[in-house]
Design a protein around this nucleic acid. Structure first.
Lengths: 219, 219
DNA sequence: GTATTGTATATGATATATCAAATAGCAGGC
DNA sequence: GCCTGCTATTTGATATATCATATACAATAC
């Protein structure tokens, strides 16, 4: 007997639109039209509207004064504002995770490390993004702080879409795993302060690689 | 010419339900019924439903497996998890605000301080909560970091409802303003580190006063 | 008396119809 | 040629109708 699971349409619409955002299907500033999306997904307007409103509440979409709903432009300035928040919270989560990690967790993280290294050779950007996310959240989940985790998830939703293209940089691709290796080493020897510092450096380095290619906000 | 402003019903429903939550109108675990709320507010179900979903996205309400929507119980454990996140972010916001505060801001903060002191004499809990919020956000807004501010606002929404009753404690009421005074003093002399430390202490002391009276999570 | 099953009711989820605001295009006036 | 105002169309907002699921309760079987 396998359980039959029901998922409301608005949830699925949310997921669809979210992956669409992450994959850059929707161009910034181009309005998301409820009726159009409804027709595309073959459902009615109501669940689409609900999904859009949820995305607006999460600030992944914004409502213009015209009431149009559009993808906000991720600017260098916004990313720069997000960075210290992420550094503080993801650093905290890493530190909290240290005493809670068991040897098996470390082994799994090493497995992810290997797979990330492989993507650098195969130039598989999609796999890299997926694995990078997995690596980070494997750690954050171990913080044991649900509320913290939830806030971090919200922040990743915002920065996620711009991570695409991070992999284009040769330099980044070559060193993408460097800090990860240090993080796992620190985690293994139970050095919370070092783990936190490495995690913070990982975020900062990625941001440094990414920010120059983001557009600056319109004055 | 005063601007005529239109506000969608779902926004207003959101506000209404939110203040209802803050005022403890809705008991935890008691389901919020869409049709009932719609009838009470004299509008149709759709905007109510949208408001509820937004509140769910913000985690101010939760959906049970039955699909009922209820107020989650704020437990001691959840509050304890929220605290370090708030300390980190509100501390950061305070620190960032220091170099951006102008003398007029300080004057305004002092004004709030006086009014808070007055509430301790008149036992006006509602006014205290309002002014306390105003005091904190006057500072946070000056951080110049919109993203940070938004996350903090989300956290305050969660802890807001339990702040009611903070004022019942004699000891807290007498010392409610102590840290605030130190914060303003530090802000005035431009001492970012001290301002941050005082802010962190303010949050921690309030939490210490509040947490014992929260129910522990069901095992 | 308890358990089970069927039925009525409550309630959330979705689709559709209708309303209202915004936008685009066009005609007329200057 | 450009502005103004009208109209049609698009599109978001709301209300309502319908459907599906969960719950409560009653009836029946044992």
């Amino acid at each position: 007997m396998t359980k039959i699971e029901y998922q409301p349409l608005n949830d699925r619409a949310y997921q669809e639109i979210l992956t669409g955002l992450t994959n850059g299907i929707f161009a910034p500033m181009q309005p998301l039209v409820i009726r159009t999306l409804a027709e595309n997904y073959g459902i009615s307007a109501t669940p689409i509207r609900e999904a859009l409103q949820r995305l607006v509440a999460e600030r992944l979409l914004v409502v213009l004064p015209n009431r149009s709903i559009v993808v906000p432009q991720m600017t260098r300035e916004k990313f720069a504002q997000l960075l210290p928040v992420r550094v503080a919270l993801e650093g905290m989560a890493t530190e909290l995770a240290v005493p809670r990690l068991v040897p098996d967790d470390i082994a799994q993280l090493r497995g992810i490390l290997d797979r990330i290294a492989a993507t650098a050779k195969t130039f598989d950007a999609r796999a890299y993004l997926q694995l990078n996310r997995e690596f980070h959240f494997r750690i954050y989940e171990k913080s044991g702080n649900e509320e913290l985790l939830h806030v971090i998830q919200g922040l990743w939703l915002k920065v996620g879409p711009v991570f695409t293209g991070l992999f284009d940089s040769d330099h980044f691709r070559q060193h993408a795993n460097d800090e990860h290796v240090h993080i796992v080493a620190a985690l293994e020897r139970g050095d919370a302060a070092a783990a936190r510092a490495c995690m913070e450096r990982d975020l900062t380095l990625a941001a440094r690689s990414l920010m120059p290619r983001l557009a600056s906000a319109a004055p």
